[in-house]
Design a protein around this nucleic acid. Sequence first.
DNA 1: ACGTACATGTTACTTGCGGTAACACGAGTG
DNA 2: CACTCGTGTTACCGCAAGTAACATGTACGT
Lengths: 213, 213
Amino acid sequence: MDTTQRTEQQQSADRRRRELLEAADRVVLRDGPHASMNAIAAEAGITKPILYRHFGDKGGLYAALGKRHTDALLDSLRAALDAPAERRERVEATLDTYLAAIEARPQVYRFLMHPAEGSQGEAGFDVGKHSAPLLRRMGEELAQVIAERLDLGPGSEQLARVWGHGIVGMMHAAGDWWLGERPCSRAELVRSLADLLWGRLAAAGDKVGGPGF
Amino acid sequence: MDTTQRTEQQQSADRRRRELLEAADRVVLRDGPHASMNAIAAEAGITKPILYRHFGDKGGLYAALGKRHTDALLDSLRAALDAPAERRERVEATLDTYLAAIEARPQVYRFLMHPAEGSQGEAGFDVGKHSAPLLRRMGEELAQVIAERLDLGPGSEQLARVWGHGIVGMMHAAGDWWLGERPCSRAELVRSLADLLWGRLAAAGDKVGGPGF
DNA sequence: ACGTACATGTTACTTGCGGTAACACGAGTG
DNA sequence: CACTCGTGTTACCGCAAGTAACATGTACGT
């Protein structure tokens, strides 16, 4: 039949696509985001045009690659956010999940966020535009959770979205900085961020002698 | 004398450098970050090797370009942060200054932050790694201000740095999202972010029937 | 006046990558 | 057996980064 044929072919094409993605994953994680299409094709045991037949262009490949990791990360975040516990505890668990993920596989993180600066300290310059997708998706998801579960009064819809993106950005920037400098333990970082979210900034007193922030 | 010679040459070289930077600025802001070195050289009325003599490589040029804008932005932020007013008011003024800047010149912002996706909806892919420098610098500056002026008890040094980078990340991500979707006025955005910083997240009540965040 | 040193500029090239066209092989089907 | 279609290859194009080698003006020491 036509349909069965199509299905078989589709399945085989999908398997192939997954294999190619895994090969690309290996190369990108080994060589950094500067990996050339030639290198990826070589790792997969084939040549360039096949990659292009599957993914269109390099952007397509990187987008597919990014989506895999993004989906995985979002799944763990959702799990942490859905755990049965107090709100602050869940917030801390979510922050910790994210930070643990970028700590465990910094290569993946660097690829997703700012794919420049390959492993070597080269003056590399090429980058993907993945950060936006990941950050945006996380922001939107968090906004939805906030809007669903929190009672924020009038304008809650918009407030939730601002907060979603804002909190995600806070987590992202702090995590990025922390990953580079490692100025403290993950637990301390989580606590500090949660404290910030919990209003300690507003509650803090001015230092003696100064104008206070 | 030798020194006077060196000085005169240095001065002329500096003038030239500034001219080149301004030309590069025009091209980048017109063509997006995909601008080729050839195009920039042409705009400046000269040819490629001269650019390379002045800036080493494209990264050097873009770094110099980024530094100009970054310095300017940081100056306005410092001014807003130093204004004589209540803390929350100053925080709002600073947020507003940043958002006003990215609103007024989105081209510059896009170049500094994620220089991909040129004005045309191309599948563009090349990017600079400028976001890190700008975000890092803003984070560190804010951290210093917090540490200097706020009384945060033990561990205040680290706490201030986490908060600095976290707040900057919040501002950045929210601003980036807002700039793309324009879901509300700038003033509303500022208010929402300040509310988040002021602990409204912690103070919000759970929605009826749900587990509450 | 003349060669020397140096800054400033150019042309023409190499290298490397993204992307594509054209061709080659193998298997199932009338 | 011819036909097609999926899968693969080689060989190429275009373009941008970066460089080598060469030209030219100008101040200086002798």
